[in-house]
């Protein structure tokens, strides 16, 4: 498949393009729409696990595809495949969940598995040591917004 069906529909989707899960498909891509309403129970996808093995995985943790991950695409299917494709562009677990119409908990379990398998790399949020400097940076960044 050459088209990026997982990308959000361009234009006309309004400010909350992912909010219409389960509603009428509207102008959304039919593939994405059907995957969003497949009726598969979320935890079937994760074999019943509600928590990742690595419970330190935060919702904002940045996930990116490793070289191994890029090479392994042909072996992957469904959600795992889509996650590894999407993470060529590093993004948070929360963003992945929204883009793939997965529950947050499910996305976190799948990401945890793929990290363990070496197909994804994670950049965790900074620990408390640099908190003051980071807060100062965020203040400056916000103040620059006009």
């Amino acid at each position: 498949m050459t088209t990026s069906w997982w990308e959000p529909a361009q234009g006309g989707a309004g400010p909350r393009p992912y909010v219409d899960i389960g509603g009428p498909a509207g102008d959304r891509d039919p593939v994405a729409a059907s995957s969003a309403t497949s009726g598969v129970r979320p935890y079937l996808i994760t074999q019943g696990r509600a928590r990742p093995n690595d419970t330190s995985l935060r919702l904002e943790a940045q996930v990116s595809t490793t070289d191994d991950g890029a090479r392994s695409l042909s072996r992957l299917a469904y959600e795992r495949h889509d996650i590894v494709v999407l993470c060529h562009d590093p993004q948070s677990i929360a963003e992945l969940a929204a883009r793939l119409h997965l529950h947050l908990g499910v996305a976190r379990v799948l990401v945890g598995d793929l990290v363990e398998a070496g197909l994804l790399a994670v950049r965790h949020p900074e620990d408390a040591r640099h908190r003051v400097q980071i807060i100062e940076r965020v203040i400056r960044g916000l103040q620059a917004i006009s």
């Binding site: 935060r58 904002e60 940045q62 060529h88 590093p90 949020p125």
Partner: peptide, 9 residues
């Protein structure tokens, strides 16, 4: 291939 991920807060 892979960009350095941002530092999330």
């Amino acid at each position: 291939p892979v960009r350095r991920p941002p530092l999330p807060v």
